[in-house]
Design a protein around this nucleic acid. Sequence first.
DNA 1: GATTTCGTCAGACAAGCTGTTTTTTGCCGG
DNA 2: CCGGCAAAAAACAGCTTGTCTGACGAAATC
Lengths: 207, 207
Amino acid sequence: MPPTRKYEQRLRAKAADQTRRRILDAVYQRLVEAPSEQVSMDKVAQLAEVSRSTIYTVFGSRAGLFDALGMDLLHRGGFTDMVTAVLQPDARRGLRDGITGNVHMYAAHRDVLRALFSMAQLDADAVGGTVRRLEDGRTQGMNDLAQRLHDQGALRDGITIDQAGHLLWLHTGFDAFDLLFTGRSLSTDTVATLLAHAAEHALCRPA
Amino acid sequence: MPPTRKYEQRLRAKAADQTRRRILDAVYQRLVEAPSEQVSMDKVAQLAEVSRSTIYTVFGSRAGLFDALGMDLLHRGGFTDMVTAVLQPDARRGLRDGITGNVHMYAAHRDVLRALFSMAQLDADAVGGTVRRLEDGRTQGMNDLAQRLHDQGALRDGITIDQAGHLLWLHTGFDAFDLLFTGRSLSTDTVATLLAHAAEHALCRPA
DNA sequence: GATTTCGTCAGACAAGCTGTTTTTTGCCGG
DNA sequence: CCGGCAAAAAACAGCTTGTCTGACGAAATC
């Protein structure tokens, strides 16, 4: 039956949003402080000073929680800066600036992104659809950039637009970043210049 | 107390090896048939037609089982071919052939390797030390190759030996392969030539 | 042939995890 | 002053890993 009385939430809704945020921050914190360790709902609840059942009422499931975390990162993590960097008029500069911006964004949230991407690879449903949506956006963006590089005559001879899209996708991915950043202990800036140069030499005609 | 009688195993050891192999094959099969799904010891036991407790007596733990699976792949998966391909006299050909061999090996065991690598990234102890050992070997090999490319004057101006090692490491890793193979639905050969060309253009002076 | 040894099985068990449900506790809002 | 809702608390089912027990049978030794 419908509510017999209407409710204009003010303080209550605000409080609810705060607990929602506390939970998200707790997951984030847990992933940063103890990466490469299983994140249990119980520990998250303790860290957020919230009952475990509250997490389920707010996010529905474990997957929903990580999905929300991904969305949260998407909105606050600086993804938009990256998009605008790629979309500047000069496609070749867009390539460089896009990779650089991407790398810095990855570095800022490295542990959390590593967990999200690895979980998504092991079990597609474990993190909801966020990771796939995020990657789909990058796919689109890199295909566009490849097209624009071609239109501006920046592509090397013997490279098709499709191939350019593939290589851009490879060089702008989180895995490429993390392989160098974590796997080879390089600084953020070193990774950025290394990736940008590699992509440019692989794709573009010599300047 | 020590056994009071010595034991030279013949048939028994052979039978034990067979059950060990049945279990390893079962894990492999399970990972291939149902990737992106949790592999439980119970299902492996059923598939191998073995008691669950037997897996623990043979491999010690879940981590031990996956560790053994990694070792098994290391020995039978064609890793040696890749090493010899890299070590041929002409370093530049070694680069091309190494990447090609690598890619084909990755493709042959894609699902299993994906599971192993992702598990290792989420929890370092989950698969024992095999993945790390495997990657350490590749690190060594790629650093050597970078040095030899330099010695033979094949490196582009402005690329240090260290940088070459980093980029070789990036282009020969499983993630680079899988990003293109799975993430972009490319054929094995397409991935191989794409990666080989990208690496060569990023590293080497124009032919 | 008798006996020891060892691989395997079957099952019980504790502990931890997810996810659901039910009951209670406060406190905001009218 | 209550009605309604966020949240807590607790119990529950079901799955998982990992340990331990006792038993069985067949190979290896004597």
